[in-house]
C-alpha cells in the first residue's frame, strides 16, 4: 500500500512541476507585457513633458533593459526546451539573419558613401530597420532550414 502511493506520488511529480513552471512562465509573461505597456505610456509622457528632470528621463530610457533581459532569458529557455533538430534550425536561422543584416547594412552604407542611398536610408538601417531586416531574414532562414530537413 505504501509502495503504491509512493509510485503514485512519483508519477504526479513531473506533471505538477510542469504546471508550476508553466504558471511561473505565464506570470512572467504577463508582467513583461505590463512593463512594456507602462514603458510605452511613459514614452508619450516624456514627449508631452519635456520639463521632466534628466534623471527621470535617463531612468525611463533604461527601463527596457530589465524586461529585455527577461525576454532574453525566456528565449534561451525556449531554445533549451527545443528538440535538437529544431534547435539547429533556429541557430542556423539566427546566424543567417545576423549575417544577412550585417551584409544589408554594409551595402546601404556603401551606397550612402557613394551618394546612391535615398533620403530614407541616409542614416543606414537604424534600430527599427535593423530589427525588421533581422526578423524578415529569420523568417527566410527558418523556411530554408525547414525545407532542407523536411
Amino acid at each position: 500500500m505504501k509502495d503504491s502511493s509512493l509510485h503514485e506520488q512519483d508519477a504526479e511529480q513531473p506533471d505538477s512541476n510542469a504546471v508550476k513552471r508553466a504558471l511561473r512562465s505565464f506570470k512572467l509573461n504577463i508582467w513583461l507585457a505590463v512593463t512594456t505597456a507602462v514603458y510605452g505610456a511613459t514614452l508619450f509622457g516624456v514627449r508631452l513633458h519635456p520639463d521632466w528632470s534628466p534623471w527621470l528621463k535617463i531612468t525611463l530610457a533604461l527601463t527596457p533593459i530589465l524586461p529585455g533581459l527577461l525576454y532574453l532569458r525566456n528565449g534561451l529557455q525556449l531554445l533549451r526546451g527545443l528538440d535538437e533538430l529544431q534547435r539547429r534550425i533556429q541557430l542556423e536561422a539566427w546566424l543567417f539573419a545576423a549575417l544577412g543584416t550585417v551584409v544589408v547594412g554594409t551595402i546601404i552604407n556603401v551606397f550612402n558613401v557613394h551618394g546612391l542611398g535615398g533620403n530614407r536610408l541616409a542614416h543606414g538601417l537604424e534600430v527599427g530597420g535593423t530589427y525588421l531586416t533581422m526578423f524578415m531574414l529569420w523568417c527566410v532562414g527558418v523556411t530554408i532550414a525547414n525545407c532542407r530537413y523536411r
Partner: peptide, 14 residues
C-alpha cells in the same frame, strides 16, 4: 524528439 527529427535522420539529411 520531434517526428521531423526522425524523418530527417531516416532520410540521412541530419
Amino acid at each position: 524528439v520531434s517526428r521531423q527529427t526522425i524523418n530527417a535522420i531516416e532520410t540521412e539529411k541530419y
